[in-house]
Design a protein around this nucleic acid. Sequence first.
DNA 1: CGGGGCCACTGAACCGGTTCAGCAACTCCC
DNA 2: GGGAGTTGCTGAACCGGTTCAGTGGCCCCG
Lengths: 339, 339
Amino acid sequence: MAKETIAGLAKRLGISKASVSYALNGQPGVSDLTRRRVLDLAEELDWYPSSSARALSRSRAGAVGMVLAADPLLIGTEPYHMGLLTGIETALAAGDTALMLRMVGNDPVQERATYERWAGERKVDGVLVFDHLLDDPRPALLDRLGLPFVLHGAPETGVPHTFSRTTTDHAVDATTIVDHLHAAGHRRIAHVSGPHRFVHEAERVQGVRERAAHHGMEVLPHEANYALLAGQDAVTALLRAPEAPVTAVVFGNDLMAMGGLLALRELGLRCPDDVAIISWDDSLHCQLATPAVTALSRNPGMQGRVAAELLLAVLDTGAIRTESMPRSELMVRASTAPG
Amino acid sequence: MAKETIAGLAKRLGISKASVSYALNGQPGVSDLTRRRVLDLAEELDWYPSSSARALSRSRAGAVGMVLAADPLLIGTEPYHMGLLTGIETALAAGDTALMLRMVGNDPVQERATYERWAGERKVDGVLVFDHLLDDPRPALLDRLGLPFVLHGAPETGVPHTFSRTTTDHAVDATTIVDHLHAAGHRRIAHVSGPHRFVHEAERVQGVRERAAHHGMEVLPHEANYALLAGQDAVTALLRAPEAPVTAVVFGNDLMAMGGLLALRELGLRCPDDVAIISWDDSLHCQLATPAVTALSRNPGMQGRVAAELLLAVLDTGAIRTESMPRSELMVRASTAPG
DNA sequence: CGGGGCCACTGAACCGGTTCAGCAACTCCC
DNA sequence: GGGAGTTGCTGAACCGGTTCAGTGGCCCCG
């Protein structure tokens, strides 16, 4: 079946292309009768507008892009990103916008090249950007490229920003976590975080430090890279250290928490009796582990939805807005239960 | 900066649009000198072809689509799909093709509507289809829509097919699994599979049955739905049954295997001493569980890459081809280790 | 009754590429 | 020296929509 076009519909009805276009788009300039006839015929021939023709004449791609820049190995195992993706897609589908996905190994150059191409080819109308970095070059780049974007997970700081973003209050999360450990009697803890070049990690580290100080607790910070092995190594190193041992470890994600658990087992230490464990991300891993791991549930699906909806609004209105993420919830499980 | 266009380049160089186009696309019809001048200028102004204009005139979108039709809850937790996605994206990026992603809850109507729209709007050049169903309506639908596709995970059966697909030999996998259990001394096992409406599940069930018969083993089949809870319930039901208990359970995916493990724990049974467990999908869950779960590693990343490359080839040549998936590998772990 | 305003509709330009037919100049060969 | 073939280039049509500047007919009102 040859594709129907607007010209085809017009010819069949004996009217002009322009009228057909107006009718189909609900624009004024056609009588109700004509509009009905057009819509009925379009329905009957199941006509759809050619997305490329429409994109060309409207100068709008009808799609937004997302670059997943992370170790492919991590992405496959970390449920956080998948949850995010699901939420994003839900919001975009509702807004009749397509999602263009690109995965690049943890490579800033490729991420940058992708944005440049997308902007140059006008392939997407905007992008979602993740994992805000210290001195992040991407906002400036995207501004220069004229590509609208939403930065997901920017700091909560009150500084007025020149771009749209979603924020999470990591200080509040830190307080939740530290208070929980303090209440369980811990006075000396370790914090195995992700790389500090991520703004959210820097904020978490600071948040934990400050809240711990507030309680008069001691914190051993340890920077790692989110991998299972990193969590394992961190715990091994921390507990072999000559200083008085910590009684609890906070992990920056679920994978490292799992690694920590393995390390404890190898060291012959019991969790939570000898060392308690808590993860900054909840996931099935935390629920299934033995003992089940206490974790902060951040609802990635909701976060994705909010971010995507914000991007759609930005594309629509051009406004610059900031959206706060809903509060996280601590899922208390056996790994921190008073022994 | 206003976007450069081919007309702009042509004007600056004092030549025609046509020549510029030929030069940029490596087509004959321009002198080497002119070609160089065009390419240099394009480089200098960093010009990119407008994807929509190109799509319109070439009648090719430069993108392929993929509908992830599964329970969003499952998708987030099952690493299989994410691995697949990573592989697909890798292959597409190499082929300069964009990936359009749509997630629909486990809803055939929405999946169908998505294909119809994509075809009608000519938004994608082809699609990747997953989870072959018994009496799958999708091949016929896509043929009718004129949308090229690759069906991933079709049966290995020798019947000549009218479409391109990738196949997995589930009988071989079943043999691997059953032989492993037989060698460990099991004679009566259960097989907790996914829904039989999936062709691959039907084949696995048959494969397990036949291989077990070959060894004179007994198999209790149990159809479930891939969810954690389903695995849990299945094991509870199977082991409470009045008949002689099984000594091993084969699970259709890692999640159900985890559920099975939980159920065993609740029933006070030890794994592998009382009941051995084996999963048809490997993942971090299997590796982290206590005991670690023996699983068939199917390399989803590789599968995705092969499927995507096949689709690109199909789009290029229009040929109908079948690609076999590489052999799976059994990762033997504690859950089936002779007690 | 005449003029202003509105309504329904149309032709043509436009978005930014690709591609075809045509044409001038130049080479080659008998 | 003249016809055939090649090379390098151009103008214009085309892909399938959107949109602007008319145009004619009709109604309303002073």
